[in-house]
């Protein structure tokens, strides 16, 4: 369990990192927190020829709020989100999710941007990005471009990032101060990747749900929204029955894959339950 040979580069400036990525192309791999990449290399599942360590680059780990967005620098560590980074429901949602990211030592090293770029369909941040339709900023020597979550995640461990691009920041839209957020996960042990995860955001106006967002993790190649469940909720009065109906709809919306931790049928079962529980929890806060 030792990595295959690789070249190690540690740029101190963003521009330098981008030019290295441009130079090495497919051969390169970015090292951020290393919490997924390093084990993969030790298992020799990943064999990058060049490892580009971005940890020495200053100024790409900030978390700031604009008028309508939370802007998260790519090197912001998971642990940072354990307490709300912003007032209101978004900070609270991120805190709920952060506490489910691995174990504390993983949260201290692992990064927000690294998790998104790794694109594990069970990862909390990928689901949150999908839930909120976050905007990812990719930088390269060719310039910058913005990619929305729905276009960013392609399939398991695969994103729209080009080999020469570095994910430099993620922009999460701030939520309505009265928004109701829910986040639940089911895993065998504390800190494990979710067998299924569900999250939700509801805006309620005049006693009726004006907008509903539901995202599911670990049920496909990428995190998924559930249009059917959102449609069930839209315009209706929140209630236990309605949430149960949304859960049914969500279960009908997914075609989960199976593995030793859960068969497709079991995962579908969990989607039903967790979607309902996420919605329920959101209205109980």
């Amino acid at each position: 369990m030792k990595p295959a040979k690789f070249e190690y580069r540690a740029p101190r400036e963003l521009e330098e990192a981008l030019s290295i990525l441009a130079e090495v192309g497919d051969e390169g791999k970015v090292l951020a927190g290393g919490q997924s990449l390093v084990p993969s290399m030790n298992f020799r599942l990943a064999r990058p020829a060049v490892l580009v360590d971005i940890n020495g680059i200053g100024g790409i780990d900030s978390v700031t709020s604009s008028s309508d967005h939370l802007v998260i620098g790519t090197l912001a560590r998971h642990v940072r989100f354990e307490r709300p980074v912003t007032d209101g429901p978004l900070g609270h949602l991120l805190a709920l999710a952060a506490r489910k990211v691995g174990h504390r030592p993983i949260r201290i090293r692992g990064t927000f941007g690294g998790s998104l770029a790794h694109a594990d369909p069970a990862a909390e941040w990928c689901m949150i990005a999908t839930l909120l339709d976050a905007t990812m900023v990719a930088s390269s020597v060719r310039g910058q471009r913005e990619i929305t979550a729905s276009n960013f995640f392609k399939t398991v461990f695969s994103t729209a990032l080009e080999p020469d691009e570095l994910l430099t920041e993620a922009r999460l839209p701030l939520l309505n101060p009265a928004a109701k957020i829910g986040f639940v996960e089911f895993s065998r042990r504390a800190g494990d990747f979710a067998i299924v995860a569900a999250s939700s955001v509801l805006d309620v106006e005049g006693g009726r749900i004006s907008t509903a967002r539901i995202a599911l993790g670990s049920v496909g190649g990428t995190p998924l929204r559930s249009p059917a469940a959102e449609a069930v909720l839209q315009g209706n009065v929140p209630s236990g029955e309605l949430f149960a109906e949304a859960g049914e709809a969500a279960a009908g919306d997914v075609e989960p894959m199976g593995d030793i931790h859960g068969s497709p049928e079991y995962r579908r079962d969990l989607v039903r339950v967790l979607t309902r529980r996420s919605l329920q929890a959101s209205t109980e806060h």
Binding site: R189, G191, F193, I260
Partner: peptide, 28 residues
């Protein structure tokens, strides 16, 4: 409740890391 070594029908072990083989931790 937790630990199980699983072989597939060809006799290949599927549980070859601590992500797949699950000893309980303090939390459990």
């Amino acid at each position: 409740l937790f630990e199980e070594l699983v072989y597939d029908e060809n006799g290949n072990l599927l549980t070859t890391s601590l992500m797949d083989y699950l000893p309980p931790t303090m939390s459990e």
